[in-house]
């Protein structure tokens, strides 16, 4: 077979089915939207109980993380995520799933070197670059204050 990698790449693209966008996009939209509605309901509930806006938002996050963690433990979050795609990835529940899943998976390697060492194996980059970006923003803010 005399074939360049570019030709082979064309063949690969021809043979590989594309994702069915008409299925994945609505599912991501609806499931993601519903998770946000759940967040809104929790936020309203906590506000009703007298928490201020910042705290109500924090407690909402904690509650969503709690739900996601236990759905992950029961092996249900990945079943929803199969359909949800970005709808279960982008909300904070997806972040929680990406922390809890390795914590559970790698406990066979021990609670120190498995669970603890690998807990951020997927979510680590999010924290690293989120914090890095916030520090850069903070320094810029500080410099503007000096001027």
């Amino acid at each position: 077979m005399k074939m360049t990698t570019a030709e082979y790449d064309r063949l690969t693209k021809k043979a590989s089915p594309n994702t069915k966008l008409y299925l994945t996009l609505p599912k991501a939209f609806v499931i993601g939207g519903l998770i946000c509605c759940l967040g809104q309901a929790l936020f309203n509930l906590y506000s009703y109980w007298g928490l201020n806006e910042m705290n109500a938002r924090s407690v909402t996050s904690i509650t969503l993380v709690f739900f996601s963690a236990f759905l992950t433990g029961f092996g249900l979050y990945d079943k929803i995520a199969k359909h949800g795609g970005a709808g279960t990835l982008v909300p904070i529940t997806g972040f929680a799933n990406s922390v809890v899943a390795p914590a559970l998976e790698f406990k066979t390697e021990g609670f120190v070197l498995g669970t603890a060492a690998k807990i951020f194996i997927i979510a680590g980059p999010v924290i690293v670059y989120g914090i890095a970006a916030s520090v850069i923003y903070g320094i810029i803010l500080y410099l503007f204050q000096l001027m």
């Binding site: 594309n18 994702t19 966008l21 994945t24 996009l25 991501a28 939209f29 609806v30 499931i31 993601g32 939207g33 519903l34 998770i35 946000c36 509605c37 967040g39 809104q40 949800g84 795609g85 970005a86 709808g87 990835l89 982008v90 909300p91």
Partner: peptide, 18 residues
């Protein structure tokens, strides 16, 4: 609006994945 805007953020994510 929580549903629509939240869903839209996820929709963009799905477009990026696919």
């Amino acid at each position: 609006w929580a549903f629509v805007i939240g869903g839209a953020f996820c929709l963009v994510g799905q477009l990026l994945i696919d």
